[in-house]
């Protein structure tokens, strides 16, 4: 199967006040296939959101995508696109939804004008048809009484409804890839369940590929085809979802699983990862997890590459070479 999106050795760097550069995304490589879901999982500051922004070339200044990075969308080199060509990809072929449904909608425009704006930007359709499409999209994301809702302003909608509108806007360009950056983090659990159901349904009916950015392994389970776990700007483990959950192999991934409170099983003490996620300026040399890792490895001062531990299952850890887990 050919990859729809291919990200290779992506590096995003920012200048530091005292000179020099920090590299919050440092050599990220993954591929996304048509109709599949890839989850990019990690804690705050791991670089997952910046990775997703870099794909659409939305890295906030003064950050930049460093030379040597590759982002290919089918045959198109996204990093080489400029101006109009770039805009034709954004929203039309790759769409994005964000975490905060409160600020990602413009408060002074109606739902209708925000959806039809995207429709008009990408398709030559009369006004009337754009509105019909907007209503159909609202219907599709599960908003009751769509014709009435088109006239609403964002502040008249609940958080869950706004996120549905955001999804409708993202779908308006009929994209091939949907990047969902923490799409349900700001929502209550029962609303999260609603939104995830909508997203699942749409992925199936539209055959979109989804890049799901999240900190929550719970919403990845049973949803993503593949998971890439990020820590300190790098992918530290990458595997098919089943293999990752059955057999988390990087000590960081294991630590994450140990930290997650669960509804079933023993309620003894959780076993958190000690310490805090260091900021990019304080990432250790060699293995970036070594300052918090429970295992002391003789080679931890050398930076490990991604090494196989199973079929299609890679970890950035020297333990893979030892054949140990």
């Amino acid at each position: 199967m050919t990859a729809l999106l291919e990200v290779q050795n992506l590096r995003v760097s920012f200048p530091e006040p005292g000179g020099g550069r920090i590299v919050p995304v440092d050599g990220v490589t993954f591929t996304l296939e048509r109709g599949r879901t890839l989850a990019l999982v990690g804690e705050s500051g791991c670089g997952k959101s910046l990775t997703s922004l870099a794909i659409l070339r939305l890295v906030p200044p003064p950050g930049r995508i460093d030379d040597g990075s590759t982002v290919r969308f089918g045959e198109t080199d996204l990093l080489a696109l400029q101006g109009e060509a770039l805009r034709r990809v954004r929203g039309r072929r790759i769409a994005m939804i964000f975490q905060d449904p409160m600020t990602s909608l413009n408060p002074v425009f109606t739902v209708e004008s925000q959806i039809t704006e995207v429709v008009h930007a990408h398709f030559e359709v009369p006004k009337r048809e754009a509105r019909d499409r907007a209503a159909a999209l609202l219907q599709e994301v599960g908003i009751p009484d769509p014709l009435a809702r088109l006239k609403s302003y964002p502040h008249q909608l609940s958080g869950g409804m706004r996120q549905r509108v955001m999804i409708a806007i993202a779908l308006a360009g009929q994209p091939e890839i949907l990047i969902a950056d923490e799409p349900t983090t700001a929502l209550d659990v029962t609303v999260q369940a609603q939104i995830l159901e909508v997203l699942d349904g749409l992925r199936e009916s539209h055959g979109m590929a989804v890049l799901l950015i999240t900190h929550d392994l719970g919403i990845v389970a049973g949803r993503a085809d593949r998971v890439a776990v990020m820590y300190a700007g790098q992918i530290v483990e990458s595997a098919p979802t089943g293999a990752l959950f059955a057999n988390p192999s990087h000590p960081y991934t294991q630590g994450l699983f140990g930290s997650i409170p669960r509804l079933t099983g023993a309620t003894g003490r959780l076993s958190p990862i000690p310490g805090n996620v260091p900021p990019p300026s304080a990432w250790p040399s060699g293995c970036r997890f070594r300052t918090r890792c429970p295992i002391v490895h003789p080679r931890s001062a050398e930076a490990p590459p991604l090494l196989p531990v199973g079929p299609d299952h890679l970890i950035r850890c020297w333990l893979a070479e030892d054949g140990a887990r």
Binding site: V189, L217, I219, A221, G222, F245
Partner: peptide
Amino acid sequence: LLSAVPEPDPTAQ
């Protein structure tokens, strides 16, 4: 509420 809690376990969905 309970059923909406995402469990990090694909086998126990």
